[in-house]
Each structure stands twice: as structure tokens, then as C-alpha cells.
Amino acid sequence: MSLVKIVDKPIDVDTLTKSLIHNEFGGVDIFLGNIRQYTDDIETEKIEYTTYKSMAEKEMQKLADIVLAKGMDVVMVHRVGELQLGDVAVFIGVSAPHRAEAFENCQMLIDQLKHTVPIWKKEYDKDKIRWGGLEE
């Protein structure tokens, strides 16, 4: 049961995980991205994610379709709004007949999501606000 969605509430990791366990597949790989306190010397207090939602879901679906076309199951959920330390921002899960494919495709999905999906972070760091992705 493939699922691709942007949400503005906490991600229900347990339900999404369970939705990826199928009798016909033997391996599930899941990536969780959560809000990290330190990036080198920079201390983050919270992150606000915004999105161009309709386009973001389309772009996520394009990525999911690549994996679905190989006969695997996919869940991609990204949360937007104000997130605190430890909150899960993104859940990517791939269920596959064999584990190597699950790992490979899960990693591809998160790597590509970071390149193509219109979601932006505004990072409230202790020293200042940083806009993710911008070269300064």
C-alpha cells in the first residue's frame, strides 16, 4: 500500500512501519530524518519547514513511482510546520523481496527528495536564522 504525503502533524512512525510489512516481501528498509541539535558548532533550536505542497507531492510521487515500477512497496512522508529537536521530519520506507534492493532504493529516495522536492527549511540556530539550501 504505497503512500506519498506531506503532513503537518507528527509522523506516525509505527503505523507507517507496519504498513510496509507484507508476506510477499522479506526486507524493509526505513530511513528517518530527525531534527539534530548540533551541526558541527552550530546549535539548532527548531526548524520550520514550508512546502509548495501540490508540487512537492507530485515530485515525491515521481520518485516513488520509480521504485513501485520495480515491484516494491514505498512510503514517503515529509512533515512540515514547526519541528522541535528529535522530531521526525521525514520517513522513507521501501519493502522489497530482497534486502539489497530495499537499501538501495530507500537511499535513492531520500537522496533525490533532497534534490528535487520543493520543501524548505528555516533553521532557528542559537546564533542566527539559516535558510537551508542557500549558498551564502
Binding site: 530524518g33 519547514y49 512546502t51 509548495y52 501540490s54 508540487m55 512537492a56 507530485k58 515529509h78 521530519a89 521525514v90 531520500i110 527528495l113 533532497k114 534534490h115 528535487t116 522536492v117 520543493p118 520543501i119 524548505w120 527549511k121 535558510w131 537551508g132 539550501g133 542557500l134 549558498e135
Partner: peptide, 27 residues
Amino acid sequence: NEEYTNDEKISLESVDEIAIIPPVSGG
């Protein structure tokens, strides 16, 4: 219309929506 463009010529009558997409930083 919710698709990235590159250098192509865009005809106004084909356009429903235009958006400017700064570098994305999801995940």
C-alpha cells in the same frame, strides 16, 4: 504548472501557475 522548467520557451496560454523554487532543503 507544478513542473520544473529549464531553458524552453513558455507560451502564456499554456500556463495555469508559475512558481519560483529556491534551492530545496527538505529531509
